[in-house]
Amino acid sequence: MSTDDLNSPEYKDKIPEELQGTVAITTLDRIYNWGRRNSLWPMMFGLACCAIEMICTAAARFDFARFGMEVMRSSPRQADVMIVAGTVTKKMLPQVVRLYNQMADPKYVVAMGACASGGGPFKEGYNVVSGIDKYLPVDVYIPGCPPTPQALIYGLMKLQQKVDKQSIKEVYREAGKEIPIPVLGPDIMDPRDYDKIREYTLKKAEAEAQAATAAESAQSA
């Protein structure tokens, strides 16, 4: 990053001409984000096919070390970006949410590929979560099945652009907020939905009972 990029545009004119190119005036936000955007550490966390493309992106040919992302951490505690690479299944979902909760703030989620964004071709499956954004806040969606490594890098650059625009004040506002971990019952259950589930199942039971009595009376008649 040259001093020109570091300069905040609104202060650029205030630098004396002889010092231009040597001195930069910037805002705290800008320099703070400059540091953050160039050291986004993704979590080493792959789910399905897209994970293989993510590995290829990390490997020699596409090499996202060029963006300061080479340190893929296996522990969520040391990671800033969770690249949800692949189909999220209901069985895996509690773990994904738990991993997200354990990440350090400020944290970002990239939904890589059709499956992570919206269920993908497997959407209709009984064990598939139709989009991780039903549970986690997603910052960037990358379409494609799977996105090529270059498409992934493009998405990560979009994330960097997003980081650029944030201000320190906002970034930590949500810090420490945890997402309730879904529970594996007869189907996946969001703890926030419990009342709704009860209402729904009771209604369903009633409807079934009614149908049964209707069938019975029809039979006896």
Binding site: K90, S130, D187, M189, I197, T201, L202
Partner: peptide
């Protein structure tokens, strides 16, 4: 969401 629950099921 992609969910369905059996009739009469009570999460509590």
């Amino acid at each position: 969401k992609n969910v369905d629950y059996p009739a009469g099921f009570d999460p509590a």
